[in-house]
Design a protein around this nucleic acid. Structure first.
Lengths: 214, 214
DNA sequence: TCTCCTTTGTGTACGGTGTTCACAATCCGT
DNA sequence: ACGGATTGTGAACACCGTACACAAAGGAGA
């Protein structure tokens, strides 16, 4: 008990314990509120209660922090898609189930984009991040990234004989393009402000187009 | 001739003449090099040779400058699409020409995205800008914005009896979604670095999907 | 032509940001 | 218990967007 008088309360622990995770969580919250632009290194350290330079013990860059947040956002998207898929029950017909699962990936994707626009934009903020899309911390509970979930749904479609096998290679890029583009239109573009029923309808219509045209 | 000795050469004209346009041009060049993030107000004034605060005589905000650059980028995109369309000659069959024109809009869009990724990203940087997409300074030589060019192509498709009239309303959003999404994949996403022949092929395949599924 | 007002660019200043670096506190293996 | 590696601190730098008072230039009316 050297100095227990009314000095400014000492920090409980000099070491934080898990500063890296805390910073990513703070950054994720900021991304949720304002997109990738809003994840500000100094603000993150402020929220965690730590000096700005402390972040550099765990991230080389602001960009590195943003990449971690980006991964977290992609994982959240994967979880949303998994949630959409979980409610699907096969009524015996495997072809119909496979189709429903592909639609589920699309609607889950769009639902997440509208529910969490900040996180969604962050998940796809430009960087070298998206190159290796197959990483554990970009995945959901099942261990699959959003991209891999889409690929799996397409594989099931082939297995159920509804998508010709020769059309399978590269099909994920076509489907992904369509849904991702619509998501952008809905949150940033001219379709912003479309309310739930209309947004849902145009989403379903787009997925119809993909199903028909794939 | 009050002070014509060896003083530091006076600025030729105190008034710049057309500072606003000069700033937009500088900003556009920076956007071309590094996307929307790279259009920095101070740097623009530096390139033009003017004090930073001078910009505020012509733009309320950095955001206002960026919006102007964004409009210029959209106009450039419109010109690129028009260029793609200009090479098309009808071989008598109006249905085939209409189809070719729709494809032209898509390939022009994708070509521009790959040729000018910085400008492309800037053209669709998130803001209130995209809401009123119909403005003269977002248009090409023909006075139509990229969005309106797509709409016109779809109208021709209806006129040529290849797209059923009841499917026309809202179709631009479906087509735009697909092409825009692919553009994003090609410049920022997992398809980055795809070279010309492959990129062109996946583009054509996507447009096939749209044509079939619309 | 002179004067006065409006427009447009200047200089300075403030707060915020990312980043660096020497230093201090803590933890951990020996 | 000790000594080195790890992790957080504080001060500093350069840069950014923005605000404000001031000065230079131009134009309208006498």
């Amino acid at each position: 008990m050297t100095s227990a008088e009314a000095g400014p309360r000492r920090r409980e622990k000099y070491r934080h314990g898990d500063l890296r995770r805390a910073l990513v969580e703070a950054g994720t919250e900021m991304a949720r509120e304002g997109g990738p632009q809003a994840v500000v290194l100094r603000e993150a350290t402020r929220r965690v209660g730590v000096a700005p330079s402390a972040a550099y013990r765990h991230f080389e860059d602001r960009r590195a922090l943003l990449d971690a947040v980006c991964s977290a956002a992609q994982a959240a998207l994967a979880v949303a898609i998994e949630g959409e898929l979980a409610g699907l029950a096969g009524d015996g017909n495997p072809a119909e189930l496979a189709r429903a699962r592909l639609r589920g990936v699309g609607t889950g994707y769009l639902r997440f984009a509208r529910a969490e626009p900040g996180l969604f934009r962050t998940a796809f903020s430009a960087s070298d991040n998206l190159r290796s899309a197959a990483s554990r911390d970009r995945a959901g509970e099942g261990g699959l990234t959003p991209f891999q979930l889409l690929g799996a749904a397409l594989d099931e479609l082939v297995e159920a004989d509804v998508l010709p096998r020769e059309r399978r290679p590269g099909a994920e890029f076509l489907a992904w393009s369509a849904v991702h583009g619509l998501a952008m239109l809905l949150i940033d573009g001219p379709l912003r402000g479309l309310e739930h029923p209309e947004a849902r309808e145009v989403g379903q219509r787009l997925i119809d187009m993909v199903e028909r045209g794939l």
